[in-house]
Computed example of a mutant assay.
Amino acid sequence: MDVKPYPLQFKPEMKERVWGGRALERFGLELPAGAIGEGWMIGDHPNGTTKVVNGELAGVGLDAIRERYGREWFGSRGFSEKNGRFPLLIKLLDCNDDLSIQVHPTDDYEGLPAGELGKTEMWYILDAKPGAKIIYGLKDNVDRQTMETAIAEGRIMDTLQEVPVKAGDAFYIPAGTVHALCAGVVVAEIQQNSDTTYRLFDYNRPGLDGKLRELHIEDSLNVIAYDGAGAVHLTSTETPAGQWLTIASSPYFVVEKGVVDAPWRLGTSRESFSILIIAEGEGSLQWADGEKPVKAGECYLLPATLGEYGLDGKMTVLRSVVPA
């Protein structure tokens, strides 16, 4: 079947988490029963593959689209070199409670499961309750021995940096950075296509099955970047309309923020797909063969061959591409 490229929207894969809630309903998303912590909005992973809900490819999974259209739609940079899958995983997170203190490995960590990638990611804070914070990196002079001793003595929190957050803040989290989202935030997450997390501490709480969740102390100690991995954050509340502001840049993704308040003509590149996350507001998305209304909480995969497209309305948009 010869299908012209068009913006793809997917049915999210919802994940129940001990720290989740119901806040994703505010975006009009349909949630199953339970504490829903993660909506996998665009995913091509064994633990969650999303299916298209719009247009000619409705009902087709992202994995099948990858196999059918290959580099034509995803671009020359649109594949993981390690496992051939779509390189990114896009999530919305509802943190009704604190997440575990955790760290992710790099691609070359020998303890990774077969076919799995490392996990460099970034967060964009969509909403934050007063006083909300995150754990973001280590305090000065914390080395492996210091961390190991603090864990053994039950005082890991003494080694960690707490950072207050508000809507519009962006955080780049390279693999090796100790981190944790805390209660009261809703987040858009752009990350490598990986589901590998090593937990250092989980507040001694039971998981959904009533048992204490597994910790991964040795793996965590092995992959922590004690001297820093290049984590940076910025506040982007003053983004000028009609311009892209880079809020995260890595070897795996570049994420930009744009404010739409008038018609804005844009285009895709043959080298990479584009992913649009509507972070706030509503408007429309136009391309050569169509137009559709869009609103906060929606995510779209624009094929590399889509070409010219346009945005209009009153909204804040995050755009992600794979860099050269």
Rank of each mutant, 00 (worst) to 15 (best):
Met1Pro: 03
Met1Asn: 00
Met1Ser: 06
Asp2Val: 00
Tyr6Lys: 04
Pro7Cys: 03
Pro7Tyr: 04
Lys11Ser: 12
Pro12Met: 07
Glu13Asn: 07
Glu13Tyr: 07
Lys15Ile: 10
Arg17Lys: 15
Gly20Thr: 06
Gly20Phe: 11
Leu24Asp: 07
Phe27Gly: 07
Gly28Ile: 03
Leu29Tyr: 07
Glu30Tyr: 02
Leu31Cys: 09
Pro32Leu: 00
Ala33Gly: 08
Ala35Lys: 09
Ile36Met: 01
Glu38Val: 00
Gly43Glu: 02
Val52Ala: 11
Val52Glu: 04
Asn54Tyr: 03
Asn54Met: 11
Asn54Asp: 13
Glu56Asp: 12
Leu57Ala: 01
Ala58Ser: 12
Gly59Trp: 05
Gly59Lys: 00
Ala64Val: 06
Ile65Trp: 07
Arg68Cys: 06
Arg71Glu: 10
Arg77Asp: 04
Phe79Thr: 02
Lys82Ile: 13
Phe86Ser: 08
Phe86Ala: 07
Pro87Ser: 12
Leu89Met: 05
Ile90Gln: 03
Cys95Met: 07
Asp97Lys: 10
Leu99Pro: 00
Ser100Ala: 09
Ile101Val: 13
Ile101Gly: 01
Pro105Val: 02
Pro113Ser: 12
Leu117Lys: 01
Gly118Phe: 05
Gly118Asn: 03
Gly118Met: 01
Ala128Asp: 01
Lys129Ile: 05
Gly137Arg: 13
Leu138Thr: 02
Lys139Asp: 07
Lys139Tyr: 03
Arg144Lys: 15
Glu148Val: 12
Thr149Gly: 14
Arg155Lys: 10
Asp158Ala: 08
Lys166Leu: 04
Gly168His: 12
Ala170Ile: 10
Phe171Ala: 05
Ile173Lys: 11
Pro174Met: 13
Val178Gln: 05
Ala180Thr: 10
Leu181Ala: 14
Ala183Cys: 01
Gly184Trp: 08
Ile190Ser: 09
Gln191Cys: 08
Gln191Thr: 11
Asn193Glu: 08
Asn193Tyr: 03
Ser194Lys: 11
Thr197Pro: 02
Tyr198Gly: 12
Asp202Tyr: 03
Pro206His: 04
Gly207Ile: 03
Leu208Pro: 04
Asp209Arg: 10
Arg213Phe: 04
Glu214Ala: 08
Glu214Lys: 09
Ile217Gln: 11
Asp219Leu: 10
Leu221Met: 14
Ser236Ile: 01
Pro240Gln: 04
Gln243Val: 11
Trp244Phe: 09
Ile247Thr: 14
Ser249Leu: 13
Ser250Thr: 14
Phe253Thr: 09
Val254Asn: 14
Val254Phe: 03
Val254Ala: 06
Glu256Tyr: 07
Glu256Asp: 15
Asp261Trp: 05
Ala262Ser: 15
Pro263Glu: 13
Trp264Thr: 10
Glu271Val: 05
Glu271Gln: 13
Glu271Pro: 02
Ser272Thr: 15
Ser274Glu: 13
Leu276Tyr: 12
Leu276Val: 05
Ile277Glu: 02
Gln286Phe: 06
Trp287Asp: 00
Ala288Gln: 06
Lys295Met: 00
Gly297Met: 08
Tyr300Arg: 02
Leu302Ser: 11
Gly310Ser: 06
Asp312Phe: 00
Met315Leu: 14
Met315Gly: 04
Val317Pro: 07
Val321Trp: 02
Val321Glu: 02
Val321Asp: 06
Val321Arg: 08
Val322Phe: 01
Pro323Thr: 04
Ala324Met: 07
